[in-house]
């Protein structure tokens, strides 16, 4: 009478072990899929935030000719500054990758900072209403770039730490999710230039 009961017991145990194994596989599968999905959406949010940065870089790019022309009206012999701005602007226009854009926009930022120093020597220019308006808009744009850059870097940090952390790193390697590039601000440019009237 024991033989049959033992067999039933073994069967029961076998079923339960099978269930446990299946359950563990299911759990691993769920965490695998959710890791993959979270990597995809984090990657997308980094892209979206980079789009915001690009919008503001473009806004700055568009504002420069107007500003330079106004300054030229008062300070026509400051050729060196105008040239460095023109060069940086051309470089930004030709930039393709994120790295190139970051380098070119940092160059443009320091050229603009030099322009602001030059402006200090022209009281008449500082009193010009149109110039004042342009300067408010320029410093507003610089600040927007700083804000979107900060938010971009936060997203990159979140994404990169996910990509490098176990066990997500396995999935990241499997599907080719590499770390993303930070937007490092030019030295001394963490604070947007501000005009004082």
């Amino acid at each position: 009478m024991g033989g049959k009961g033992d067999f039933a017991n073994i069967m029961k145990k076998g079923t339960i072990i099978l269930l446990v194994v299946l359950g563990v596989i299911l759990l691993i599968g769920i965490s695998f899929v959710s890791s993959y999905n979270s990597l995809v959406s984090l990657n997308e949010s980094v892209d979206a935030q980079w789009g915001q940065v690009e919008n503001q870089l473009q806004a700055r790019y568009d504002k420069i000719p107007n500003l330079v022309n106004t300054v030229k009206g008062y300070a026509s012999h400051e050729q060196e500054v105008f040239e460095s701005i023109a060069n940086a602007r051309a470089r930004l226009a030709g930039a393709g990758t994120v790295e190139e854009q970051v380098a070119a926009s940092n160059q443009l930022e320091s050229a603009l900072a030099r322009l602001l120093v030059v402006v200090e020597n022209y009281p008449n220019l500082k009193a010009d209403a149109q110039f004042n308006q342009l300067m408010y808009e320029l410093s507003g744009t610089e600040n927007r770039i700083a804000v979107e850059r900060m938010r971009y870097n936060e997203k990159v940090q979140e994404y990169n730490s996910r990509v490098k952390r176990f066990p997500t790193v396995l999935i990241a390697n499997m599907f080719g999710f590499g770390p993303r590039t930070y937007f490092e601000a030019a030295a001394g440019a963490e604070v947007a230039p501000r005009v004082e009237f």
Binding site: Y136, S139, G140, N143, R144, A146, V147, E148, R194
Partner: peptide
């Protein structure tokens, strides 16, 4: 949310 628009002064 805001994105850095506005103006500052002393």
């Amino acid at each position: 949310r805001s994105g850095g628009g506005g103006a500052s002064g002393k």
